[in-house]
Design a binder for these strands. Structure first.
Lengths: 231, 231
DNA sequence: CCCGGATGTGACAGAACGGTGACGGACCCT
DNA sequence: AGGGTCCGTCACCGTTCTGTCACATCCGGG
């Protein structure tokens, strides 16, 4: 279906931004919360596929949050990875006891975090949830983050992947550059609108060997559209 | 048409009451929420036509709420106006980028607020209509930005597209060149009135292959009209 | 039937727009 | 430290669009 959604619950904005940025780059849909309260609010409509929870939070300890999530039948299936400072490492056992599926010690490398996330998700969704989008012979498997045309693999960078994913979930519709920045890059990034053009170019180039670049269409004066129909 | 529904999301009761009072007097149907959570609840059954969202809210920032609304296909079409204190004005860009359609700085005059509301609503829903307009076999799908006659695509330039869109939403009515400049080109552009003639010509030419140019009619001495009836 | 204003129409030059290659920087891996 | 990948920005270029003009044509009134 859609890209995997991750909810970050972390009160320190720098860290939160950093992690969010990295995860978005890796192709995840990221939402953020700085305390347990807003985390719960996001839970309602976001239904994240995974949560990253800081150990120490202002209003309630992250551990508390995790415990209560795991007690609730609605939310018990959402995997939780806890973020903990090294000094708190001794509480590791407590973290797992609280119901967290894994934990990561700060400071951590993005690579490590990604690896944990993928591992936990793989464990959580037995036999892979088959999120496969298909369009004109173009296949995008969201669970494995792979794109293929026919039986050949299409190599895409993270941004191109997200762009294509967005297009495939919103076909036949025109999006302005601003809208794409909003919805593919994320609402709080500021980049030139022309940057969109460049990534469109890169996506097209990747699709070119399969004559699928025609799916990415320019609507002069308005934006871009993903469609099978020519025009 | 029923009264337009407006949902106010604002935690300070005095302000909320004031605004609600003013809007009700202006003929709107108003519901209120004091945090994002109850706002979401109202969203489900109220389906407001527009939302006023305070920038700072207790559980989740209004900006966050706006962003998440704009990300959700169900709610992305609801126009949002953000209310912000003067001190937060610097975040204006952030607010608009977050997906808000407009913003108003506190303190604001009722007159200003009403003007913004009307402007945003007009922008968002042209006569509260369908996304796809149809007229005498001519189809204009605004979301995909396509125009077709029968099963053939009609190629239009940006201005011709806007012109046709305007005509199709206002059929059977005569518009002077000045009015068309105002409403299709935009109020603050100044261009020779004869320019309208040229674009009428271009639109007609595009419709000609389908014998639909007859829909664009000249009313000598007054302007143009879009109509199926001849004469 | 003739006249004058209104409208149709083709041409054109400048502006706007989008495509594209290149570049420097950030980040990560080895 | 070195190499690689990805990203955002820029400058340049061809294409398309746009507004204006000049001239042709049309229309109604006298």
């Amino acid at each position: 279906m859609t890209a995997k959604r991750i909810l970050i619950v972390e009160d320190e904005k720098p860290i939160r931004d950093l992690v969010a940025f990295g995860l978005r780059r890796a192709g995840y849909e990221v939402s953020e919360a700085e305390d347990c309260r807003s985390a719960r609010a996001s839970l309602v409509d976001q239904r994240p596929d995974l949560m990253l929870v800081d150990w120490m939070l202002p209003d309630m300890s992250g551990l508390e949050l995790t415990r209560s999530l795991k007690r609730d039948k609605e939310t018990e299936d959402i995997p939780v990875i806890m973020l903990t400072a090294r000094a708190e490492e001794q509480d590791k056992v407590g973290g797992l006891e609280g119901g967290a599926d894994d934990y990561v010690t700060k400071p951590f490398s993005p690579r490590e975090l990604l690896a944990r996330i993928q591992a936990v998700m793989r464990r959580a969704s037995p036999a892979g949830g088959e999120d496969v989008l298909e369009f004109e012979g173009l296949r995008l498997d969201d669970s494995s983050h792979r794109v293929s045309a026919g039986d050949a693999e299409v190599a895409l960078g993270p941004t191109e992947y997200r762009l294509l994913h967005f297009f495939m979930t919103h076909p036949e519709r025109v999006f302005g550059r601003g809208q794409l920045l909003d919805r593919v890059w994320g609402g709080n990034t500021y980049v030139e609108e022309r940057t969109v053009d460049v990534h469109i170019r890169r996506l097209r180039r990747a699709l070119e060997p399969f004559a699928l670049d025609r799916l990415v269409q320019t609507v002069r004066g308005s934006g871009y559209r993903f469609s099978a129909r020519e025009g």
